[in-house]
Design a protein around this nucleic acid. Structure first.
Lengths: 239, 239
DNA sequence: CGCCAGCTTGAATCTACTCAAATCTTGTGG
DNA sequence: CCACAAGATTTGAGTAGATTCAAGCTGGCG
């Protein structure tokens, strides 16, 4: 497996935890990861307007799926973290539906086409399911939570996802977002996000300085917000 | 193709418009549709807790995907209309994530398993993509629209979807929802939904009596709300 | 060292919520 | 076919959470 020193690369760590991958599938992915592309912070992962030709795997960095609104506003639809695939659905739809924008510097690679390997197809199916779950979470957040809960719920999701990739522990994780991006994701104004963050800090739920965040008691928080105790994401395929 | 009198059945009308289906794929679907199941209004389409064994096609009626919240609240995540598939993703996830509940009486049938026919797999891929688009729409609605716009945007989506199934025209369509369900979908209170509806009626944007709705100028509304002129949903598959 | 993006703070306003009650509909049993 | 009950919609008054606008910080970077 692709490694950094002695540990698996976060993206691969995540994928290996989503489904068990045999050496065949692994080597396909590793081969794919040998040729990477680097994306600058505010750059688009150029998959809109034009037909997308292959799915992409995000190896490092954060990206977001955004929709530009008629009134000049912006909605962050979802976040893309290491080990996430982009464009699995076959993306060719009217643009403006959504664009993918790099938040930090990112490295990506082409992912093998669906149909290459049954194992990989299984992985893709699971990945799509997890992505969908995140969209559903986002809907529930926006629909039924107040500002404070929205923020902490999203942070919990980040923590959970990064933990799966092995790059979060003890409640702390890198959080390379501006409050404005957070606001655009959560349907709030930056000003109000700021106030709620301060409140959360004062209440000792959260620390967040220098792009490094720490949730003081993720489990308790998750319980309070009614997040499912996110058990394993075991998945049974059709066949 | 499955028909009602001389017209194609709405569900089939929709599917045929999503992708072109050869007689092979069609007969598979028709065979599936020969054995239907009827679901009562408030019943669950029983796909949660237990592992789902096959995908399902909604032939008639309205259903919704809901999440029950810790605080007793409820979020309607999405709506399921005739011609929509349920459980395409391989649903086996911790329950409480979401349940599917019939709004009206529904008739459903088993859908052929993925992998049965390449054409059908293509259809499933498109269907998933469209579903995803609806989730993204829902996120943008909840995140960045005010109450009035949320309501009308959702109604526009209904209209658009039902039109694709051939069961809406001239802006009017069956709308078998209570204001409370609408509120639970839009992250509002029933009271406020009611007020906004009255306002919309007064402004001549909307009529809605006896479960029959009519948008007076869907195109103008869509433009005002910045809905993409929902062009064809053409879709290029990977292979 | 100075600039700019991002963060923080304050005050006024407004959208949407809450609670509560009245009215209208629909379906059901007598 | 009517009466009633249950569900759904409507209306009102008071409140709260989030927004807007505006200005002052702060720290990382050229």
């Amino acid at each position: 497996m692709l490694k950094i020193g002695s540990r698996p690369h976060p993206a691969f760590e995540r994928l290996a935890r989503l489904v068990t991958l045999d050496s065949d599938a692994l080597s396909l992915l590793e081969a794919a990861a040998r040729q990477t592309r680097r994306i600058d912070p505010r750059a688009e992962l150029a998959f809109e307007r034009q037909e997308i030709e292959y799915p992409v795997l995000l190896l490092d960095g954060w990206a977001m799926r955004v929709r530009q609104l008629a009134d000049g506003g912006r909605q962050v639809l979802s976040f893309v973290l290491p080990g996430d695939f982009i464009g699995l659905c076959g993306f060719s739809r009217p643009r403006s539906t959504s664009a993918i924008v790099a938040i930090t510097a990112c490295t990506v690679c082409r992912a093998p086409l669906p149909g290459t390997s049954p194992q990989l197809d299984g992985l893709y199916a699971v990945s799509r399911t997890v992505d969908e779950a995140h969209l559903l979470n986002q809907i529930a957040r926006l629909g039924r939570m107040d500002a404070h809960d929205r923020i902490l719920d999203l942070l919990l999701e980040f923590h959970e996802r990064l933990e799966l990739a092995g790059i979060a522990g003890e409640g702390s994780f890198a959080l390379p977002l501006t409050q404005e991006v957070l606001a655009d994701a959560l349907g709030l104004t930056p000003v109000h996000v700021n106030r709620m963050l301060q409140q959360a800090r004062k209440m000792g739920e959260l620390e967040w300085v220098a792009k490094q965040a720490r949730l003081n008691d993720p489990a308790a928080l998750a319980a309070k917000l009614g997040r499912l105790p996110v058990s394993v994401r075991v998945q049974k395929s059709w066949r």
